[in-house]
């Protein structure tokens, strides 16, 4: 293992490497009678970058929403061993969510949108200003604080959405196919940005995607899911000998990772009863 690998996967004994969220035998039945998740167990440790990958309808978004507390589990439990939980059983302020759409308030400026999570906590605008401007700088939008969402491109709106998710300094960032609607070049840039932020902040990321290439590029662990009912098909780490940057995209390591992930996904889809 090269030295550049060290910050990517925390060594055993690292304080970050503790279970952050533990799903035990979680099932989710919708009121329509559809079983979206069946007996899903998953432990995510601090500092990991986990991709949930699978065909559409495999319940990966449902799993993410359940972890975020958007919807109850039908059976099973979700525990947060290293967080303080509130009355709803959620780790208060420890999780952030990035939706597939930027989900910005059009009547608020970029600044106002990023201020929202702090405003809801009762932080005054003046007290939050420095934090907001710093966060906007990390996503490269420091000059756009006073712009309205409609003045921004799709990629920039997504950056605002990411800045809003990061401004509370959460432990866990949940991303639900965040770049699916963007063009390929913007998507690659944002992938690099997310990797950089992950490396710099030590945040834990659970990333839902249906793209083999995206998951192989970003994650150090991949959970492949199977549909009808949604469940875990395969769960394996992705180790590479080099840091992930522009060079990684053309490397043999990346090609092998893509092949491995792709095979697992084909396996998951092939195993379905049609």
């Amino acid at each position: 293992m090269s030295t550049s690998q060290a910050p990517l996967i925390p060594a055993p004994g690292d304080t970050r490497r503790r279970p952050l969220v533990v799903m035990r035998s979680v099932s989710k039945m919708f009121s329509s009678g559809t079983l979206a998740l069946s007996d899903m167990s998953l432990t995510v440790e601090g500092g990991e970058f986990v991709s949930l990958l699978g065909p559409s309808g495999c319940g990966k978004s449902t799993a993410l929403r359940i972890i975020a507390g958007l919807g109850d589990v039908s059976t099973g439990t979700i525990d947060w061993p290293s967080s303080r939980i509130n009355s709803k059983g959620l780790p208060e302020g420890d999780i952030s969510f990035v939706f597939q759409e930027p989900t910005l308030m059009p009547w608020q400026t970029v600044f106002g949108n990023v201020y929202l999570p702090l405003k809801l906590r009762g932080v005054s605008k003046s007290a939050a200003r420095e934090e907001i401007m710093n966060t906007l700088a990390t996503v490269g939008l420091a000059d756009f604080a006073d712009a309205y969402p409609r003045e921004l491109s799709g990629g920039m709106k997504m950056r605002v959405s990411i800045a809003r998710a990061l401004v509370t300094k959460p432990k866990l960032l949940l991303m639900d196919e965040p770049f699916a609607a963007l063009d390929e070049i913007t998507r690659q840039k944002l992938n690099d940005d997310v990797l950089r932020l992950w490396r710099e902040t030590g945040i834990t990321v659970i990333f839902v995607t249906h793209s083999v290439f995206e998951s192989a590029y970003l994650s150090n662990r991949i959970v492949v899911m199977k549909a009808r009912p949604g469940r875990v098909h395969a769960d394996f780490p992705l180790k590479t000998s080099m840091s992930r940057d522009a060079h990684y995209r053309t490397s043999e390591d990346y090609r092998q990772a893509c092949e491995k992930v792709s095979n697992m996904l084909i396996d998951a889809i092939g195993g379905e009863e049609h």
Partner: peptide, 19 residues
């Protein structure tokens, strides 16, 4: 999704209405 977001950040009924 904005409603979900407000829920996620623990917004009160009043905050959700007002903001």
């Amino acid at each position: 999704n904005l409603l979900n977001l407000y829920d996620l950040y623990g917004a009160s009924r009043w905050q959700t209405l007002l903001y």
